[in-house]
């Protein structure tokens, strides 16, 4: 038995080590190519050890630092604010749904679940957000549509509340005369840090990586996020591939940044989230642990 334990341990270690290496190696290639000179990428190919070391890509970014810093600012604001509001809304809704004494509980749960399956499509959503709420070219366009609250997270959190907050706790709070809101803030939330951290991480990733809302709702350059800048470059390249521009727009095409610069922007696009995420990591497993078990 002892021996079989050692063997499983050994197998696990080697397997996981390979997996971990596989996960991280591509990122290193990204990093090293952002430090390679343009000509050496085009001539020698991508490589883990730059043949010609060059800061050119980062220097280029520095000359555009105003717009990049601004994009950073937009991304950070959207991520922080969006995650916060999202957490609050998700927690409120999930908590109410977790209460077995909520009238029409099944109906409301179904309302949430239904949104996971059906959606109106891009054009109708666009109509609602531009015509009814007129948020085009505002910072809200990066926060509200599609991202602010997601049915999956609500269901995950609801399950957490149902399984990990014992009903007697709520019951005794009520006996003490605490209102629903006080119970929620002073008893439920402190008990729910793991799930809050988990959903928080998910939301942070969604907001940080979102390029779609920017593509759809933003034409004003001061509101571009980092991912939008990356996506614009990529879509410009793809556009060139599929169209006959004639001679007139080739000057527009010539403004697309080169490979090295694209890689450099990608690097500065992922670094912050890689740095931020260990802070969430601590709670991550625990949060899902209690949230995903169906109650």
């Amino acid at each position: 038995m002892y021996r079989s334990d050692r063997i499983t341990n050994w197998i696990s270690h080697s397997f996981l080590l390979i997996l971990a290496a596989g996960s991280i190696i591509p990122l290193i290639l990204l990093l090293s190519s952002s430090f390679s000179s343009e000509a050496s990428i085009l001539k020698e190919g991508y490589s883990f050890f730059p043949k010609e070391f060059s800061f050119a890509a980062y220097e280029y970014l520095l000359t555009n630092s105003a717009s990049i810093l601004r994009a950073y600012g937009v991304t950070i604001f959207v991520t922080v604010f969006g995650t916060f509001v999202s957490l609050a809304m998700t927690a409120f809704l999930a908590y109410a749904l977790s209460r077995r004494d909520l009238p029409y509980r099944n109906f409301f749960t179904f309302i949430v679940f239904f949104t996971l399956l059906f959606n109106g499509g891009l054009v109708p959503t666009y109509l609602v957000f531009t015509q009814v709420f007129d948020i085009k070219n505002t910072i809200w366009a990066l926060i509200v549509p599609g991202l602010l609250m997601n049915g999956f997270n609500v269901l995950l959190m609801r399950t957490f509340f149902m399984t990990s907050i014992p009903e007697p706790v709520i019951e005794s709070a009520r006996m003490d005369g605490a209102g629903e809101f006080r119970t929620f803030f002073s008893i439920i939330l402190p008990l729910s840090l793991p799930i809050l951290a988990t959903i928080g991480l998910l939301q942070t990733i969604f907001y940080w990586n979102d390029w779609f809302n920017g593509l759809v709702y933003i034409t004003e350059p001061s509101l571009f996020s980092i991912q939008n800048m990356l996506n614009r470059m990529l879509s410009d390249i793809q556009f060139l591939a599929s169209s006959n521009l004639g001679t007139n727009t080739s000057s527009a095409a010539s403004q697309i940044p080169t490979t090295g610069v694209r890689m450099a922007i990608a690097v500065i696009g992922i670094l912050p989230i890689l740095i931020a995420y260990p802070f969430f990591q601590k709670y991550l497993v625990k949060g899902i642990a209690l949230g995903s078990v169906k109650g």
Binding site: L122, V123, Y126, L127, T130, Q131, K136, L215, V216, T219, R232, M233, L234, S235, D236, I237, Q238, F239, L240, T249, A252, A253
Partner: peptide, 21 residues
């Protein structure tokens, strides 16, 4: 003036035209 990058132009103008902006 509302400039839009070429790669996103079709998508964004399609939405604009479809929604009577």
């Amino acid at each position: 003036l509302t400039p839009i990058n070429i790669g996103n132009y079709v998508q964004q103008t399609n939405l604009m035209l479809s929604s009577n902006e």
